[in-house]
Design a protein around this nucleic acid. Structure first.
Lengths: 151, 151
DNA sequence: TATTGTTATACTCTATAACTATA
DNA sequence: TATAGTTATAGAGTATAACAATA
């Protein structure tokens, strides 16, 4: 059945590309002593200030795991814990200037590392690929969920 | 510049889809006490019998890391170490029947878990997406490199 | 001497369980 | 009571360095 074939071919391509992308992110992160998860957290924090529990849920991690992760990154000055004015139990996570600078640099390195691969498509094909990917993607963590205030 | 824009949009989509796919693989692996890397190894071993060093290099892992990984999977009976007739230093890695059965089941689970996402495209779009992905992908480990004998 | 793989060691990532503080 | 987060603990994943066997 051609519908199943297309499903399998796509699955294979998505999985292979995922491992390829993860390999690049892991390597570049490691060159700066950042785990894949820490790299991801910094990327998320660029335009968000989530609470610990929301961030843990989005990452699919236990809250205790996130505590340690945030500890280590905070010790390095890449991010900080902040009080939440509405609920004293809550801890917000925010990026520091140093963290922002680092993730900006790494983003550029990732772009350069993947340029040979993405460059095998022309601009129109890249746009088409991005467009086809869009419906497949899970929505990201909402931007600055604090300002949407609904808790 | 529109060429840079398409590059950035594609990068974002690829990275997001990578995390999404990895999340699914990690979750389904964990439900069967398999790490992401072990899942990947079983997938690779389905139609290959690589030596330790080639497998480590392909995975981007140190050989010592792979030793431990293979140890744990071997203890569970999912794969085995085999002698290499051409070079007594070399250890080949091969999947067992139990490992093959397990990875087959997980493959099916992954397919089902991602069906809602990939199903948001019709068959033609899925084929198109897979085709556009192809040039971006790194070549996989060669099939049964032992039979291609060139060492 | 160089290569292949294993072992010893150490640190990070991860989850579970028990705990504290706040709601 | 329930929720948010931390800490203690333990296992897996990872790399580095030292090692044994083979080439």
């Amino acid at each position: 059945m051609t519908s199943e074939d297309s499903e399998d071919a796509l699955l294979d391509g998505l999985v292979r590309s995922a491992f390829q992308i993860m390999g690049v992110l892991t390597r570049i992160g490691a060159e700066h002593d950042l785990s894949l998860t820490q790299l991801r957290v910094l990327g998320i924090l660029r335009d968000r200030r989530p609470r610990m529990s929301d961030l843990a849920a989005f990452l699919g991690l236990d809250k205790s795991t996130l505590s340690g992760l945030i500890d280590r990154a905070e010790r390095r000055g890449l991010l900080a814990r902040g009080a939440n004015p509405d609920d004293k139990r809550v801890v917000d996570v925010l990026i520091t200037d140093a963290g922002r600078e680092l993730i900006g640099k790494l983003h550029q390195e990732v772009r350069e590392a993947l340029a040979p691969a993405t460059g095998r498509l022309d601009a129109q094909q890249r746009r088409q690929l991005a467009d086809l990917l869009e419906p497949v993607l899970t929505p990201p963590l909402p931007l600055t969920p604090r300002s949407t205030a609904q808790r």
